[in-house]
């Protein structure tokens, strides 16, 4: 496989490729930040990458929204199912995010910080 082939493949599968890159970015954000909010943001980036991946499955190059209109001849339609499913996925992600944020608010109330390391340090003080 030559370099050209690889590049060509990457170009053909660019959605998936970027979805994976986005996934890694999200995961890295989750992993490397002590700030809990940033963790949640990383989680959202991860979710977004998966949504991109899923939606890309159903995308047809040059396709249009699958709505029947009288008089318009048949063209390539985009598969609507992944998009519809991802809408649900987004709802789920939103609710998880909201819930996580509310938990962070609670943690902030208890500790006065949203830094995981700080929380750990404070916890160390009153462990028993």
């Amino acid at each position: 496989m030559t370099m050209i082939d690889i590049l060509l493949r990457l170009h053909q599968n660019s959605y998936y490729f970027f979805a994976i890159i986005l996934f890694i970015i999200g995961f890295h954000t989750m992993l490397s930040h002590n700030n809990l909010i940033k963790k949640v943001i990383g989680m959202n980036i991860m979710d977004t990458s998966i949504f991109l991946f899923f939606v890309a499955i159903g995308y047809v190059n040059g396709g249009r929204a699958p709505i029947l209109e009288p008089g318009v001849p048949y063209t390539a339609y985009v598969n609507p199912l992944p998009s519809a499913l991802i809408l649900t996925g987004i709802v789920v992600a939103v609710s998880v995010t909201a819930y996580a944020l509310s938990l962070i608010v609670k943690l902030y109330k208890h500790y006065g910080t949203i830094d995981a390391e700080e929380i750990m340090r404070i916890r160390g003080g009153d462990i028993q």
Partner: peptide, 16 residues
Amino acid sequence: IEAAFKYLVLSAVGSG
């Protein structure tokens, strides 16, 4: 709250 947060984040990654 901490346990729930931990659970939530990990299970969100799992759901991903």
